[in-house]
Amino acid sequence: MLLSVRDLQTHLHLKRGVLRAVDGVSLDVAEGETLGLVGESGSGKTLTGLSLLRLLPKGSGRIVGGSIKLDGQELTTLSEAALARDIRGRKIAMIMQDPMTSLNPVFSIGDQVGSPLRNHDIARGAALRSAVVDVLQRVRLPSPADRLGDYPHQFSGGQRQRIVAAMAIGCTPRLLVADEPTTALDVTIQVQIINLLRSIQADTGAGIILITHDLGVAASLCRRIAVMYAGQIIETGPVRAIYRSPSHPYTKALLAAIPRLGAKRARLTAIAGQPPSLIDPPTGCRFAARCTLRMDKCAEAPPNVTLSDGHSAACWKLV
């Protein structure tokens, strides 16, 4: 297994208290596989991604438990220097949510795309320039050689996301974490970026974790999906299994919330009620308060039930 996360716990130590943003997350990503991490806003998707790189909010964020193994190497105990040198940008790269703010406004894109290559000693001097042109060609930025000296504001949103992708794939990382790479873009550009991610994966064989709350995007890119709710993964399985027979009431509600008839995009907003506070969360099932099938047993933490090969969900109804 390329990436193997077990019982990951990430806490944010805030003034209000300890926020259990990621609370016992386990997931696997195989080489060349795309895993979709889906869930409502605030469910802890981004912090799960950032935990893999140990780039948590300075001062407050800490991984307090669990293990992250990349190609068998444990990352949670690695030193900060080793992480920066060998992991971040080298073996795991992350693409952030908003292409409009993800590029440094006062450095040329040539410098920025070249930066990971320089920092990880992949290329220098003239070789660096041609490597930068090459990677920009791979993300299909038009006439890259002429535009190395241009600045981010001279590119469109879609082009900027391509540039960000070029920065991320420059050192051919083993794992790409794409945090809502299309959310800020309009529909046609979204399709282009999705196709780009597909072709990057075909080229490099990288594993991808695609964080999204767009089920359409997840379905079109991923083989497997993990559904996250209030800091936990409540259902995971192959895309087909999840779409055909969603098992957790939350997943069912999510899918039911997708408008029918040709509407490709859906936002995960249409479920009544609010997710629980992650400071002092309920001890039992975290979805119970919003669940129409709630039982007395739900006051205890539900077991993870295996339903079929690779498909499991955490709900008392399934026991």
């Binding site: 920066a84 992350m94 693409i95 952030m96 908003d98 590029l103 920092n119």
Partner: peptide, 29 residues
């Protein structure tokens, strides 16, 4: 605290360069 510095960090830029190169030129404006 900006996204582009977060991205820079996520791609393994040494902290020294983050501060004195990528952040400072913005802060110098």
């Amino acid at each position: 605290d900006s996204d582009h510095i977060r991205l820079s960090r996520a791609l393994g830029t040494p902290e020294r360069l983050i501060i004195w190169k990528y952040a400072l030129r913005n802060a110098a404006v």
